[in-house]
Every structure is written in C-alpha cells, then in structure tokens.
Amino acid sequence: MRLPIRRRHFLLGLAATGVAVRWPRTLAGQHESPITRAIPSTGERLPVIGMGTWRTFNVGNDPVLLDERARVLELFFHSGGRLVDASPMYGSAESVVGELVERLDRSDDLFAATKVWTRDERDTRAAVAESEALWGVGRFDLMQVHNLLGWEGHLETLQAMKAEGRLRYIGVTTSHGRRHEELERIMTREPLDFVQLTYNIADREAEARLLPLAREKGIAVIANRPFQGGRLFDRVRSQPLPGWAGDAGVSGWADFFLRFIVSHPAMTCAIPATTQLAHMRENMDALYGQLPDETQRQRMINDFQEI
C-alpha cells in the first residue's frame, strides 16, 4: 500500500514530529534568495545546489523507502533546489524520482536531468522516450550522454532533438576524472550546453583545462561526486571545521565542501546525493549566504590538505 504524501501533508508532518528542529537557512530566512548561476547558452538561472540520485534513489518498489525518499526530495524542493540528476544506469532511480515528483506535485519546480546510457548509437530516441516515461515528463530539461558512451552518435541525435524542441539542453558526462582529454576535444568541437564531471576539493584536475575551457566556450558545468562518494567525510571525521570557516558562515563539512565547489567561477551546479533529511538540510545550507572568494578558496584547500 502506498501512502500519498503531498506538500502540505509533509510540512504538517514535519511540524507534528518535530523534525524541523533545525531548518536549513533556506527555510529559516525566507527573505534570503538562493545562490544561482546562469546557464551560459540561454542565461536561465539555476540554483547552485542540485541533487544526485546515484545509489540513494535506487529503492525499487519498497514502500517504506519510497516514503523516506519522498521526504528527502520534498525538503530539497522546499529548500529551493531544482535540478535532479539521474541515469538509466542507476537501477530504479529514474522511476522512483518520477513517481515521487508526481506524488509531491513538484513537476513545476523540477529541472529534470538524465542521461542516455546505451552502446547502440541508433537507440538514442528510444532511450530518451523510455526515460521520459519513467520520469513522467513530456520533455527533459537536460539530456546528457552518460560517461561518453557512444557519444558521437548520441550527441548528433540529441542535437537534432534539441532543434526539434524535444529537449531543452544537451550535454555529456564523465566521472572519476576519466577521459578528460577526450572530453576536452568534445567541448572544443561540439555545441554543448552542459558538461558534467567530477570536481571536489580533493579531485581538482578539472581546474587546469576543463573549467577554463567551459568558461571560454560558454558551457555550464555540473560537479558530480562532490563528496568523493562520501570519502571526504571519512577524511575529516572528528576534525572540527577551521575556525575562520564558522565565522564566514559555513555550517559544517558538507557546506564547506559544497561552497568550495560552487564558488569556482566556471561551476553552475553541484549534485550531492543523500538518503538522510539531516544531510539534505546540511547540503542545502550551501545554497544560501556568501560564497568564498579566491583567497578563502585557497585557504580551504590548505586547511583540507593539512588534515
């Protein structure tokens, strides 16, 4: 049996159960606007914190876990988030997101981003149609070629679909720092709206060539693995935040790591993934307040490297 959760029910539930003991700053200061970045190809602005679904939203048809993820997703939207990123590779994540967005009545707030993940370069349109059915969307905001798999054929079709008005933006993805040289060639040659790559305070290879190139070519950048799959937290476990960071409004390590990423001038959005309401609150803290300047970014790197 599935219990439908609508926004008002969710908020009433939070109030009743006392879950909202510590709202993210987003909710505490409604007057404050979320930090946004423009998508260079159109100027449309996106909140700098999005949501990934790798591992976290692959819950299959488990009704208990679907309800838990619904709460996490509602908090994301309520905190000002918009971009949700998934992939057919992530098991049931696409269908779970589709079901929960409909359940929460949040389709107007959603910036739907997913990927084509198939070796068959003639299968692009069928793959997009399958994802549309799973998400329950008529048109994706962003369709990316997953890990450059069959990118030449897929990208050609995605460009045609964009020209037909079937997609709003197109892009390609990599992760774990793989195939950066090939990505650079694609960014140089192809008309892309977005690239997605791994960038975090420990994995900064993209700073050398890809991020400057993205700025030069007017390509939006999504940072995946912002916490290095959780390993950054293992490294700072039991370590206090640097004193200056607290004074600068950084609320915790998640906030610290995310502010570092999205303060890079080429960066459009980071996509942390979580199953926990508390972690979502911490992530969404980075959507408000001040971003570190270049001096502070360097200080973040130094402090992190000393741990």
């Binding site: 591992r55 976290t56 819950v59 876990l65 799959g229």
Partner: peptide, 23 residues
C-alpha cells in the same frame, strides 16, 4: 581518482537489508 568496488554498486546497505524484511 580511481574506481573503488563500491562505485559499481547502485544501491545502499539499507536497501539491501530491507529485501529480507520485505520477503
């Protein structure tokens, strides 16, 4: 940056353990 074994897994321990309860 290298792949770890758990980078190939698409679900969490919580979801796995729930399979037994659901069965």
């Amino acid at each position: 940056m290298d792949y770890a074994l758990n980078d190939f897994l698409m679900f969490t321990p919580e979801v796995y353990l729930r399979l037994f309860e659901r069965t």
